[in-house]
């Protein structure tokens, strides 16, 4: 090796070592990866574009596994790391099973934040930014019970049993019902997909509509299907509180078939998640005394916000989500991060 080459090599090495301490924002290339295709996460795409523009990132791309399979998500994450992505906001395909992949990503220098759903502790995710699912289900059930008359028989439509959040939701609905003297007559789970939701909800209402007074749904697809079913039945006696902001549910609220919905904040999760990833790559760390909350999965939880929207607020639901995002973003760095 010639002397000039050696000098250049040493200079390059020195530069690279120096640059790893504090990385520039413009080489930050983040991937926002849900567990699979689902309408809930569609807001992540725009949030990623907005975050890339606002924070000067090289990219904050929304990357969807082709199917809702843990192995597909793991393979996509491994591929994205190989492609040079260096920060990840991940909705865990499984709260435990995604942990080892997250550990590998972090070991390769890419910070990980769990978004919309948490990894079970201990994990290498910096924190979990999502909806407090149990609390959301509890508050939604309270709203439903408030809308019911003397008879309080509730049916609960919810998501996949393999998702630990489902059990949290089932428990929270039961707790709210017990507190108010209501009866959960049936829990129908494993229906957060169009086909099983259509089949089971329509069959249940066809046979038992007269035996229930209220419906609580704690997953996106069942909320849509149940709202449609109530519209078809045309009987506004049965009250319903849904979840999320699908147009079908919002229109059903406007038309009086659905009492209201529990909003989550997917846009804020992705926008603030990308911001936080950039800060973590730039050398920031999560504060030792950050006011992180605990839920059933993690002690590193940050609530991205949840709100009930009824007929009086349905036209301005976007404002409610924006307000929740702004409130969290304005204080996020000062509250949760320590930056040099």
């Amino acid at each position: 090796m010639s002397r000039v080459t050696r000098v250049l090599a040493c200079a390059g090495l020195a530069l690279s070592v120096g640059s790893t301490a504090v990385l520039a924002a413009d080489d930050s290339k983040f991937a926002l990866v849900p567990g699979g295709p689902h309408p809930y996460f569609s807001a992540w795409e725009q949030a990623g574009k907005d975050a890339a523009r606002d924070f000067g990132l090289a990219a904050a791309d929304y990357k969807v596994p082709q199917k809702w399979e843990l192995s597909q998500q793991n393979q996509l994450l491994e591929s994205l790391l190989s492609q040079g992505y260096n920060g990840f906001l991940i909705f865990p395909g499984d709260s435990v099973g995604t942990g080892s992949t997250a550990a590998e990503l972090v070991a390769n220098g890419a910070p990980v934040i769990a978004g919309a759903g948490c990894l079970q502790d201990p994990s290498d995710a910096a924190f979990c930014l999502g909806t407090d699912t149990g609390n959301s289900a509890y508050l939604g059930t309270k709203q439903l019970i408030g809308a019911l008359g003397d008879s309080k028989r509730i049916v609960h439509f919810t998501g996949f049993l393999v998702d630990p959040n489902t059990q949290l939701r089932i428990d929270a609905v039961q707790r709210a019902a017990d507190e108010a003297g209501a009866q959960v007559v049936q829990v129908i789970a494993d229906i957060d997909a169009p086909e099983p939701a259509e089949e089971k909800i329509n069959a249940y209402l066809a046979a038992h509509a007269g035996e229930v007074d209220g419906i609580i749904t704690t997953a996106w697809v069942p909320a849509v299907v149940a709202a449609n079913a109530l519209r078809k039945i045309g009987d506004k006696r049965i009250k319903m509180v849904g979840i999320d902001h699908d147009e079908v549910v919002l229109q059903a609220i406007k038309d009086g078939f659905v009492t209201g919905t529990m909003l989550q904040n997917p846009y804020g999760q992705a926008y603030i998640g990308a911001f936080a990833l950039d800060k973590l790559r730039s050398g920031c760390t999560v504060k030792q005394d950050a006011p992180l909350m605990a839920n059933a999965l993690t002690a590193k939880f940050i609530d991205s916000g949840t709100a009930f929207v009824g007929a009086d607020g349905v036209d301005n639901y976007v404002d409610a989500m924006r307000a929740a995002t702004k409130a969290l973003f304005d204080t996020f760095e000062a509250t949760y991060l320590t930056c040099q």
Binding site: S71, G93, G97, G99
Partner: peptide, 20 residues
């Protein structure tokens, strides 16, 4: 082998009903 790869034995490792 998948358990070793995931670091845990999880019910969803092969999807709903193992269909994955």
């Amino acid at each position: 082998m998948l358990t070793a790869r995931n670091g845990a034995a999880i019910p969803s490792m092969a999807g709903q009903l193992g269909q994955d």
